[in-house]
Amino acid sequence: MTSPSFPFGPVRSVAGTAVALNGDDIDTDRIIPARFLKCVTFEGLGEQVFADDRSERAGAHPLDRPEHRGARILLVNRNFGCGSSREHAPQALMRWGIRAVVGESFAEIFFGNCLALGIPCLQGSHDQIRALQALVEAQPATVFRLEVDTAGLHSDGGAAWPLELGPGPSQMLRSGQWDATGQLVAHDQELRDTAERLPYLNGFASA
């Protein structure tokens, strides 16, 4: 497993081969089974991503096939990442090597968790995604370039797929402000004002 460095600073594009995981409603328990959450760091989760699905398919799982080694873009269907809020799921995908997810739709918490790691999740139509998955299965060596700015996915064969990414997440990724902590902490006075205004933080003295 050769992971590039984790996202840092502005995320403008993601380039690399892709791997397709077919199926709707793939939940975070499947992405990283709960027993691997028994850890106090995220290190090592890359090896355990989709552990049960992979052992069930004994080497035939897309993530185990040699042609997908080093893939950077994950192609999924509807409601990917539903279920538990565990950030261990995007962490495991990221540590396996995934840097962008393209799918029909995403569970909200999963989408937000990915964004907080600098991993864009882009949406496409059912037909687009099926076509992309079929292409990657037939020609796994295809190299893609995903542009955050235009939400476009381009193949080295010259094909292009217009995808969707909301303006907020897009801007956060491009500006490098996908990691919100700095911004939140900066609003020190506003935080004080809000706390002072909330009746339950002040013993209901002035509600």
Binding site: S85, E87, H88, G112, A180, T181, V185, L191, A195
Partner: peptide, 20 residues
């Protein structure tokens, strides 16, 4: 609402979250 670990960090640090 439920949040991920990066957001747990944000709430610890700022008692607030970036939300839509």
């Amino acid at each position: 609402f439920g949040i991920g670990t990066s957001q747990v960090r944000d709430v610890l640090a700022s008692q607030s979250l970036s939300m839509n």
